[in-house]
């Protein structure tokens, strides 16, 4: 049986919290809360999510460091030319460029990690969504089998939803 996505849109945060409580009372733990404000995780009683974001900067740092070593050591060895009485592989100088390379790699991969872990970018239609969310309304979205659509809609309406959107997943 095909699943449907239902989005209840609530004008007040407390109404959304009531709806989330009712969903949990009905055994639905996996729901999505859409807000225009970054509430702390768990403010709506939603399940905590896990991620591996912290791995990304480490990978980026390693790659950036390796690239910087290649540039600093590789280029100097490719054309050995002593300048300023400094050694060919002048570690303090190399350190500075390697430091920048490492940080650049870490920052770049953090951005990639954030985008990846946020499951962005999303192309196409933003289903289910309501543009009023960016002006303070709260959306509670849930994927359910077609049979449960009415029950969920009723839960949202009982919690005083301003609107309930329904779309096929």
């Amino acid at each position: 049986m095909a699943n449907k996505s239902i989005l209840g849109v609530f004008q007040e945060v407390d109404e959304a919290v009531t709806a989330a409580d009712s969903l949990k009372d009905n055994g639905i733990e996996d729901f999505e809360v859409l807000t225009s404000t970054p509430y702390p995780e768990g403010a709506f009683g939603e399940k905590p999510s896990h991620h591996r974001l912290y791995v990304f900067p480490f990978i980026g740092a390693c790659l950036g460091f390796s690239a910087a070593i290649l540039i600093t050591a590789g280029t100097q060895m490719a054309y050995p030319l002593v300048t300023g009485g400094k050694p060919l592989l002048a570690l303090p100088s190399m350190f500075i460029i390697c430091y920048e390379g490492t940080m650049l790699g870490a920052i770049l991969f953090t951005i990639i990690g954030v985008v990846f872990e946020s499951r962005l970018p999303r192309t196409g239609k933003l289903a289910p969504y309501d543009t009023r969310i960016t002006e303070g309304y709260v959306g509670i979205g849930v994927d359910v089998p077609e049979d449960d659509v009415e029950k969920i809609s009723n839960i949202f309406k009982e919690a005083n939803a301003a609107d309930v959107h329904l779309e096929a997943t």
Binding site: E32, L34, F44, E46, V115, I133, G139
Partner: peptide, 20 residues
């Protein structure tokens, strides 16, 4: 980028701010 404002996206938005 298809931002919808779900909890996961906000979570990474905040972590991104701190980590970066």
């Amino acid at each position: 980028l298809g931002w919808r404002g779900n909890a996961r996206q906000w979570q990474f938005q905040i972590i991104a701010g701190i980590l970066l």
